[in-house]
Structures are given as structure tokens and as C-alpha cells.
């Protein structure tokens, strides 16, 4: 692609993602409402869709307060990190046969690397706030990320082996005959769980656990800085959903409808599933989270890797 195309495409993508992320606020609230026998936001605009606009306006006009005891530069940088790392990752996502910013050979590794960087945001935010709740939140996030990062990568190795490439486009194309979800069902489940943990969505939202840590790592944040964390979280959901679509559900592929629509539909279905998880599952205890990661998921992902490898070897 030419430079000019990039100059147009990148802001366009960011704009679309922003809209999606903010739109998700409404979607999540509405869905949670529906699953709790309520209506959810339904007052501002048709079906309450303009609620998003109202929320954005509110968050923009809120006092942006930096606590006097905070480590100011780090405090301000932290929320930016999460948004930047997630947005950069979107560069490698193949939205369609030709759509997508970068076609990296190591697309998958890039995704893993970038999503690991995101933890800095949370850890630094917790540290810079200089408050016990924030620090605890930051610590929890770091430990959680490290633990789940390990088998997240491992769970994808099966997919890589099947496609024989780290290139996401190649991986999608490799699913022409059968979506990876069938041969790699275990990998899919493990990746999904790790993905939820990576975005610290419920039931893995221990870093912010309202009932114990006030708001965890972002207790001291307000205004748009808080908004950035919020945005980062929705970007994260979108990213993980998009990755699951790409890696396990055949990406853009599907009959009749244009590829990009298929991609969007599959991604949206995952997002809805994430919200359903939130509506259903309670938060585990921290030690349960860690032991689940290390004692269940990690061995399972190794087994998955072994079995897949074995079958591929045998098939050869």
C-alpha cells in the first residue's frame, strides 16, 4: 500500500475502532439490562444509542484530577499505554481478504508481544497512584498477565502448526476447509479464557475488583484518564474477539455476505458472549484464579500442543 493509503486508512481504522469501542458501552449496558430483566439505557436517542454520546461528553467535561501524592508523569502516561498497545495490534488484524493494515509474517507474535506490553499500563497506573488499593490492583494485574500470557501463546501454537505460519492471513486461508475451532477446540477454549484474563474482563477482573479494591488500579483516576482505561478495555475486547475470529472461526470467510461483514458478525458474536459471561459468572478468589491458570490451563495447553504436534507428525 502507498503511504497515502496509510495516511487515510490509519485514522479511518482508529475512527472505526473508537466508534465500535464507544458503541460497545451502549451494547454492554443494554445487554446486561436485558439479561437482568431490565431495559438498560433507552432514553437518549432512539433505543438509547446516544447514551454513548452523553457518556463521552460527560467523561470529557469531568474534572481531570491528579492526586497530589501521585507520581505525576507516570500517572499521566499509564492510561495512554494501554490504548496505544491495543491500537497498534489492530494493524495486523486481517479484516478481509484484502483489508488490513499490515501483513506481517510474524503477525501472531506481534499480537502476543503487544498484548503483553499492555500490562505495563495497569502496573504503572497502580504504582503511580500511590494508594494501597491501586497498588494491589496493579500487582494483581501483573501476576495475572504473566500467568495467563504463558498459555495464551502456547494455546495458539496448535493453530500455527496447522497453518504452518505466523502470518494471520495465512492462518485464515488455512481454514478454507475447516475452521480451526474443530481441530483446535481445546486451544480455542484456552485462548478464550486467556483472552478474557488479558483484557481483565469479568470473571477475571480482579485488578479492579470493586468490592475489594474500590476500583483497583484506576481508583485514583478520573475524567478522560479514566476514560482511556475504559476505552482500552473495550479495544481489548474487540481485539480478542477479532483474534478469535481470525484464529479459530475462519476470519472473514463465509458465504453470500461480503467478507468484512462476516468478520464483523463473528467478532460481534464473541463480544456478546463476553458480555454474557460478565452477566453470568461471579468473580473467583485470587488464589483460585492463579491455581486455575497454572494448574489447569497451563498443563492443558501443553497437552493440546503435544497432541496437535503428534497428530500432525503422524499425519505426515
Amino acid at each position: 500500500m502507498s503511504t497515502l493509503q496509510y495516511i487515510i486508512l490509519i485514522p479511518a481504522l482508529i475512527f472505526v475502532l473508537m466508534s465500535v469501542a464507544s458503541g460497545l458501552i451502549w451494547v454492554e449496558r443494554r445487554l446486561l439490562g436485558i439479561w437482568q430483566d431490565r431495559l438498560g439505557p433507552n432514553r437518549v436517542g432512539p433505543f438509547g444509542v446516544l447514551q454513548v454520546l452523553a457518556d463521552i461528553l460527560k467523561v470529557f467535561t469531568k474534572e481531570d484530577w491528579v492526586p497530589p501524592f501521585a507520581d505525576k508523569p507516570v500517572f499521566i502516561t499509564a492510561p495512554a499505554i494501554i490504548v496505544v498497545t491495543v491500537l497498534i495490534t489492530f494493524a495486523v488484524v486481517p479484516f478481509g481478504p484484502r483489508a488490513g493494515l499490515a501483513d506481517l509474517n510474524i503477525g501472531l507474535l506481534f499480537f502476543l508481544a503487544m498484548s503483553s506490553l499492555g500490562v505495563y499500563s495497569v502496573a504503572l497506573a497502580g504504582w503511580a497512584s500511590d494508594s494501597k488499593y491501586s497498588l494491589l490492583g496493579g500487582l494483581r494485574a501483573s501476576a495475572q498477565m504473566i500467568s495467563y500470557e504463558v498459555f495464551m501463546g502456547l494455546s495458539l501454537m496448535g493453530v500455527v502448526m496447522l497453518a504452518g505460519s505466523f502470518n494471520l492471513r495465512t492462518i485464515v486461508l488455512a481454514q478454507r476447509h475447516m475452521w480451526n475451532i474443530v481441530p483446535q477446540f481445546l486451544g480455542f477454549i484456552i485462548f478464550m479464557i486467556a483472552g478474557i484474563a488479558e483484557t481483565h474482563r469479568l470473571p477475571f477482573d480482579l485488578p479492579e475488583a470493586e468490592s475489594e479494591l474500590v476500583a483497583g488500579f484506576h481508583s485514583e483516576y478520573s475524567g478522560m484518564k479514566f476514560g482511556m482505561f475504559f476505552l482500552g478495555e473495550y479495544f481489548g475486547i474487540t481485539l480478542i474477539s477479532a483474534m478469535m475470529t481470525t484464529l479459530f472461526l475462519g476470519g472473514w470467510m463465509g458465504p453470500v455476505l461480503p467478507p468484512i461483514v462476516w468478520f464483523a458478525l463473528k467478532t460481534f458474536a464473541f463480544i456478546c458472549f463476553f458480555i454474557l459471561l460478565r452477566a453470568t459468572l461471579p468473580r473467583p478468589r485470587y488464589d483460585q484464579l492463579m491455581s486455575f491458570g497454572w494448574k489447569t490451563m497451563f498443563p492443558l495447553s501443553l497437552v493440546n500442543l503435544l497432541v496437535t504436534g503428534g497428530i500432525i507428525l503422524a499425519a505426515r
Partner: peptide
């Protein structure tokens, strides 16, 4: 049990709303 819970919550999509449109 987890899957059942997810299913049951999903079924709530079709329940009657309790919200009073004040």
C-alpha cells in the same frame, strides 16, 4: 454448571421487563 448458567442467563433475553418507564 457454568454452561447451564450461561444458558439460563441467555434465556432471560425473552423474559418480561421489570423496568417501569417512570
Amino acid at each position: 454448571a457454568l454452561l447451564r448458567a450461561l444458558w439460563l442467563i441467555l434465556l432471560h433475553t425473552f423474559k418480561k421487563r421489570v423496568t417501569v418507564q417512570y
